[in-house]
Design a protein around this nucleic acid. Structure first.
Lengths: 109, 109
DNA sequence: CATGACGGCAACCTCCTGGTTGCCTATTGA
DNA sequence: TCAATAGGCAACCAGGAGGTTGCCGTCATG
């Protein structure tokens, strides 16, 4: 968990992203428009229940937020969490750069 | 899989990242230095076999590359694949921006 | 050359995950 | 008011993931 070290645990985020169905759901929600469970499960081959479970996983990872409105619950993507995942990967890359920089400095001293 | 659309399948990459042990391994390897399986499994509580399995998962996701050297196989992180994951998340964020931009344009027309 | 370190292979176990089905509650609206 | 729609809850199931142990091949070296 070394890189970034920004409090947030990236593991559940990546785990949530590591499933095709969930990644597709997030992608559909990534325009910011909240959608109901029924809307999200219609069309696809999966049961409403399966979609619900995936949405809960995304929600617990913070990638999505739900809001109950009348008899339906609308889900929308949370950009913040996506950015945290990006930041973590940035940290990993930065580690590389630092190592290279140190190596270079050492060679040039 | 919509965002980025750059050929590479991001799902196995995120799935590989979505495990604490593997994320820690990648983090240790992210300085570019290749390390042997024995080196990577010494210290931690896990068996060499467990570490090996995790390394194979990382390798199949393209996050790591192995090179046999004498009697040991050395693993090193592959920056390229980390960047592909980042690029995917960039694509997700971009979808947001586009939607907002379209909305704004629509309001202002 | 014989011994120890490195690692692959396979069997096995347990628990979690993705998915289904059935049923029940609540809200909507004709 | 009552039927239809949206969704929650729980049980259940198959398969995969993470991990262990045991054993065997290979390379290095005292």
């Amino acid at each position: 968990m070394t890189p970034g070290a920004g409090g947030v645990d990236p593991v559940p985020i990546f785990a949530a992203l590591g499933d095709r169905t969930r990644l597709a759901l997030l992608s559909r929600l990534a325009d910011g428009e909240p959608r109901s469970i029924a809307a999200l499960s219609s069309g696809g081959p999966l049961t409403r229940q399966a979609i619900t479970k995936h949405l809960r996983v995304l929600e617990e990872a913070g990638l999505v937020a739900s809001l109950r409105v009348g008899r339906e619950s609308r889900f929308a993507a949370r950009r913040e969490t996506v950015d945290q995942a990006r930041a973590y990967l940035d940290g990993v890359s930065a580690q590389w750069d630092d190592a290279l920089a140190r190596l270079k400095a050492h060679v040039e001293d």
